[in-house]
Design a protein around this nucleic acid. Structure first.
Lengths: 214, 214
DNA sequence: TGCGATCTACCCCTTAATAGGTAGTACCTT
DNA sequence: AAGGTACTACCTATTAAGGGGTAGATCGCA
């Protein structure tokens, strides 16, 4: 039983709304039940209309797309929500997915591709413009690295040496500070770089400083 | 005309107050005009008694010595104020001098030495326990370095490379990022280290991160 | 008692980084 | 036109750092 998908469009650009309307109008199974020019208005309409799908612009003046998305999820609006945007910034993508978006589509995608993505989102998948998947992968890898690093259990000595690194010290200075041979310092540094998956002492030092390992 | 120096003691330890009283009582030219067991009480007494010298304990419960000192300076109490403390922490010393202390004396100094320090403070000098002067020098040197570094005018390229350093990148990666030869990156790094007086890229990176050079 | 972890310290070797130099090009200012 | 600055790129050299290995001493735990 292929019922029609009831769609709400939230975007402060009238032209874009018209474009989407037309695109979905030409396709089968979509019905535009509402359009909103702002986040607030969009939330009101979403509550009243209970649409199946919400296409939400990320870059709106006033309440932006992310805030709108979070508010709607807080209100337990259970429509599929796809962010539509011109931003290919990794942080926007990550934030959107984190905030419960079911899709993240670039406006400059081919209309056919957009339709396919919307379709897959309606089938329970998270629809992301293909050119962004590598960004997502990179981000996730980095995040898992951060996780690993925060959890990684350094030994007492390794922690002490990481603190020295965060102070910008050389192996020679660290050796003097901890009163051990420089060769031993090297061993510890090698081990801690391996444990934390850093490629150099500089990466380790920068990370330690940024994460206040003092 | 050697008039007597009218002294106010602010310390929450009665025994210490008594000790100081005795010390100054044995010496010539001092008269204890008041004792206070807290910062608040001390400020009140200082306003009422207008002493020539205030001996102020740094580590008091409630309003601590530094706060008391600042409040008194705000109130334009013009007595010579000497902080007396057990703390040899550089930051305490620096903060005290910054806040307008005329002296900073360690409690475990020899009584004779304390008298001499008080005396020199009464003659317009800033009296600091000798074992702390090197701390002061180091701190000042570091501070001036920070000044220099903040002011040092890096070129556009050097700034770009410092940002890369703050990202933990190697010369090879920086070269790729900025699309220049690695040999050129080395030149810029050398110049940047010299300008900012760093001894290694790690020091530079750590500093850049800590000072939010992003 | 033996196993594993940690800390120590060395070996070898390769690569990265630092310190000094010269030098060409471009641009701006005097 | 001359000088200064920035950027580029190379040369030399030494030192620092990283990656691999072995190995002894100590400690706690199974």
């Amino acid at each position: 039983m292929p019922t029609t998908t009831r769609v709400l469009i939230i975007d402060d650009h009238p032209l874009f709304r018209r474009g989407v309307s037309q695109l979905l109008g030409l396709a089968d199974g979509f019905e535009i039940v509402g359009e909103a020019a702002s986040g607030q208005e969009g939330i009101e309409l979403a509550k009243r209309l209970d649409p199946d799908l919400i296409l939400l612009d990320l870059n709106m003046k006033g309440m932006n797309g992310l805030e709108t998305l979070r508010t709607m999820r807080d209100l337990e609006i259970d429509a599929r929500i796809i962010l539509v945007t011109v931003s290919d910034a990794p942080e926007d993508l990550i934030a959107a997915i984190r905030s419960g978006a079911d899709g993240y589509i670039l406006k400059d995608n081919d209309p056919d591709d957009i339709l396919k993505l919307i379709d897959s989102a309606m089938h329970g998948k998270t629809a992301i413009s293909p050119e962004l998947t590598s960004l997502l992968a990179t981000a996730l890898r980095e995040e898992s690295l951060v996780e690993q690093r925060s959890q990684a259990s350094l030994t007492e000595r390794e922690t002490a040496i990481l603190k020295c690194l965060a102070g910008g010290m050389s192996n020679k200075l660290i050796a003097r500070e901890l009163d051990i041979m420089e060769s031993t310092v090297k061993v510890h540094i090698r081990n801690l770089l391996k444990k934390l998956k850093f490629r150099s002492r500089v990466e380790a030092a920068v990370w330690a400083v940024a994460n206040q390992i003092h």
